[in-house]
Structure formats: C-alpha cells, structure tokens
C-alpha cells in the first residue's frame, strides 16, 4: 500500500511580539512530530486542549506553514511558505471542523455551500456543479430536497453531514477530521461514524482523525498517536497502544476515560459502600 501522507520532524513555533513591558515570547506548539499514513487508513491524533493537535491539523491542511520539518503528500514535498502551491495540490486535502453550527455560513443555501469549492477550484460548468452537489448530498444520506435550504433548518448531525459533503466535493485523497463528532449526541454520533466508515470504503479515503474521546478512537482508528505538549509521546497501531500504553500520559488518559461497563460500576458501588 502506498503512503499518502508523511510528516518528518514537523516543528511549529509561534512568535508573540513583545511590548514595552512584556518580552517577546516563542511558543513551541509542535516540537518535532513524525508519522506516516497509508492510503485508506485512519490515523487518530489524541491529546488534551493545548497539546498542538489542532496546530498539526492546520499544517496538514496547508493553512499554516511548518517552521521546520518536511510534509510529504503522495511522496511529494510540500512547502506552502514558498507560495508555489497549485490548486491541484490544495484539492488533495480537505478538513471537517468540530462545530457544524459555526462552520457553515448561515446566509448560504446548502447547494451554494457545496458548489463553492467547485467554483473556486475548477472550471466545472454550472449544470454539472449542480449535479455533482446533488449526487454528493445523496451520498451523505440527504436528499435533493435539501439543496435549497439554509443551515439553520438542519439538526447538528445533518449539518455535520453537509460539512463532510462539502469537504468531499473536490475528491480529496486525505480528510482531516477535527473532532467531528464531539459536538454530537450519542445516537447521532453513531450515524456520522458509520457514514465516515462507509465513505472511506467507497472512496478509498485516508483520514486523520483528531479527537480526545478514546472510545471513538478505539472504534475508528488504525493507528493512534498520542500528543502531549507538542510532542508525540506515543505512536503505534491501535491494538498496540490500547493494549500496552507505554507513556505515563497515555496511562493517565486511559485512567481518566469513564468506563460504562457493569464491572466498573460494581467496583465503584462496592467502594462507596465501604466508605459509608
């Protein structure tokens, strides 16, 4: 299988300019992260807020340049700070954001939201744009009736489907999913995760799945990378990481995840009885 995405020692520093009183400061958001993802696989990136996982997401989606290190997409080195990006290269990576209430323009109809990437990136004629948008709506489980509606007319789960559809309009190879289900209810979460799994099979998509919910990660990921203060403290296949976490932070993370099985409830109730 071919490697779609490879990162070698990615570093990202943010410089905060100083003033009269404050000194200038440099925040090391990413301190040298390396990984690779094969075609059709899912890499999950886990960590708490402030650990640099969203910074990594921004670098992977070519929004932010890395300060140092190499980013390779389909074996080709990409450096957006040089400004030689072609639309073809940009098309390969798309992103789905966490909050579907914030990521869809409330003044745009669903059809326009879906067709906008085509208008900007391609020369597709108008009627073909429309056909492709309707086909994509059907693919994510909506119907052509939804084409002329506005985002406020949809529920959270439906909006996330629309956000996924928009990301897929340009036939990307790689989809970065930044906490795509953490704003959704349990039942809707299951539907969206199923949709993502179906689309991956059908379109041979590669996912980078950013999340802090370990139960979701265990379900969807092939490989897992755990980040802590800008460093990858653990990286391996899902079964390896879940069966035998090596780093102390990973262990803390596992211990903090609430368990919903009968055994742990029994243990907790017994402990409570003892204390009383």
């Amino acid at each position: 299988m071919s490697v779609i995405l490879e990162a070698r020692n990615l570093v990202r520093d943010y410089h905060i300019p100083g003033g009269l009183i404050k000194k200038a400061k440099t925040v090391h958001a990413l301190k040298g992260v390396s990984f690779s993802v094969e075609e059709g696989k899912t890499l999950a990136i886990v960590g708490e807020s402030g650990c640099g996982k969203s910074t990594l997401g921004r670098i992977l989606t070519l929004i932010d340049p890395a300060t140092a290190g190499d980013l390779l997409i389909e074996g080709k080195k990409i450096d957006i700070s040089k400004g030689d990006m072609t639309p073809e290269m940009r098309r390969k990576v798309q992103i789905v954001f966490q909050n579907p209430y914030g990521s869809l323009n409330p003044r745009q109809k669903i059809g326009d939201i879906l067709m906008e990437p085509l208008v900007i990136n391609t020369d597709t004629p108008a009627d073909e744009r429309r056909d492709r948008a309707i086909a994509m709506l059907k693919k994510v489980g909506l119907t052509d009736l939804h084409f002329n509606r506005y985002p406020h007319m949809f529920s959270g789960g439906q909006r996330q489907r629309i956000a996924i559809a928009r990301a897929l309009m340009l036939n990307p190879k790689l989809l970065v999913l930044d906490e795509p289900v953490s704003a959704l209810d349990l039942s809707v979460q299951a539907q969206v995760l199923n949709l993502l799994a179906d689309l991956q099979d059908e379109l041979k998509l590669t996912y980078v799945f950013i999340s802090h919910d370990l139960s979701v990660v265990r379900y969807i990921a092939d490989d897992v990378m755990v980040m802590y203060f800008g460093e990858a403290v653990e990286y391996g296949s899902r079964d390896e990481v879940f069966a035998d976490p090596k780093h102390s932070y990973t262990k803390t993370l596992f211990a903090a995840t609430p368990r919903a099985d009968v055994e742990s409830i029994k243990a907790r109730l017994a402990k409570k009885k003892q204390a009383a």
């Binding site: 039942s187 995760l193 199923n194």
Partner: peptide
Amino acid sequence: AALPDNATGDRLPTIS
C-alpha cells in the same frame, strides 16, 4: 448499544 465501547462488528448500531 450505540456506545462505541460496545461495538462488536464493523458498524455501530444507531438508535433509529
């Protein structure tokens, strides 16, 4: 059943 923890197969059962 919709909890990812309890997933047995490839797909999660949904509430609907």
